[in-house]
Amino acid sequence: MTDTAGLRGALADSIGSPGWRQALEATPRELFLGDAVYRADQSRGDLWTPVRRAEVGEDEWLALVYADATVVTQVGGVMAEQASGVVRGSPTSSSTLPSLVVLMLEAAQIAEGDKVLEIGTGTGYSTSLMCHRLGQEAVTSIEYDQEVAARAGKAIAEAGYTPTLVVGDGLHGYDENAEYDRIIATCSVRTIPPAWMWQVRASGTITAPMWGWMGGVAFAHLAMADDGTASGRFLEDDLYFMTARSHLPPLRPPIVTGIGDARESRIDPAVLDEETAVFVAQLAAPAAQWAKGEDLTILLDVGTGSRADVRPDPNGGWTVHQHGPVRLWDDVEEAILTWDGAGRPHQSLFGLTVSRDRQYVWLGEPDGPAWNLPA
């Protein structure tokens, strides 16, 4: 086997994290990528071609492995090793770029002495980094997909570690090893699962990328209080990971426009071209999905059948049509205008508070403007 110590050292140099340097130098990333990965088609984003280690030169393979880039290992539930040709679909498992893995670990403030629950084992690379630094007995990791979990377990063992590995729904946590000092999610969630709140100790933390059905993102880092609530501002980095499968939106039916009550829109729908604006709009209409066409913005709430579409008016401005029990665009307008009045701040000026009965995002301070996350 090729000695990759130099490549690991170069990767550690490029990331520049003193706390995680030794773990990066000690952990061969090639163990966690198996014998094949997917390469994206340059012309179509839903086509993926397997690249097999045996069919490319060792130099090319290791260059791929040690690039600071995300490598897709499963598409539509099909592992790259199993693919007989081009696969169509969306990635369902990957090895996240190492610099982002380290950024997550640093954001979670994980350090020696911590007991950690990782939601989403994936390839097992981040699991092994934590095992090296914390000791394998301090790490518990949960993976939903059985095939992904099996391959990760083999790679982690080959790296020399035997942490607690669980196959199951990470949204339920793993209470057998609780309480944890840190819970860290390597998948995006729509809301904070209640089980995590019960399994992290007072003054412990929950760190998780947040994602909603309109595509808005924020990076949550919450501290647990003695009263069982958790709260914290979103971090400055806008991270996105594959979404927990049970938090994905329902299938969207065919879109029909121009029905319902019509009025003039108070905001330019082009504001949704800004990432933070999408995040804000999503707070106001958390059950809505967003679609965009030429000169057309559409919101659709599958559960209630509510919908809104906005398009330019020939006489100037924009006309919105709304139909159904929830006036989606009314709610989005109010949130966008509130955000605009506050100076259009980034997500990091917002925060999240989670209690037993409510999860809400606030602007500025916990007693400022607030929006409930879906139950």
Rank of each mutant, 00 (worst) to 15 (best):
I156V: 15
I192V: 15
A26I: 07
L33N: 08
P249C: 11
V116E: 06
E30C: 04
L239P: 01
L47H: 10
D46L: 00
R327H: 13
T140D: 02
R8W: 02
V310M: 10
I336D: 01
G260P: 02
A262V: 14
V217I: 14
L363M: 13
Q199R: 04
E118W: 09
E55Q: 15
Q82R: 14
A277C: 00
T297K: 01
S84R: 15
E137K: 14
S265D: 07
C187L: 08
P50L: 09
A36E: 02
H247R: 05
S203F: 08
E333V: 09
R8Y: 04
D41G: 08
L31K: 08
A284G: 10
P163K: 08
P163H: 07
K292C: 11
P374Q: 11
E365T: 12
A287I: 00
W329G: 10
L62N: 04
A10I: 09
T164V: 12
Y240V: 13
R53V: 06
D340N: 02
T73W: 03
D295H: 09
H247F: 14
A288H: 11
P312R: 08
N372D: 15
G76W: 12
D68F: 12
R311V: 06
A107L: 13
P314R: 13
D35C: 02
M197H: 01
A285W: 06
L105V: 05
V278Q: 11
H323E: 15
E365C: 03
Y66G: 07
Q289C: 12
R39K: 12
T121S: 08
G215C: 08
E25G: 05
A277G: 00
Q347M: 09
F32L: 07
V217P: 00
E365D: 14
G160Q: 05
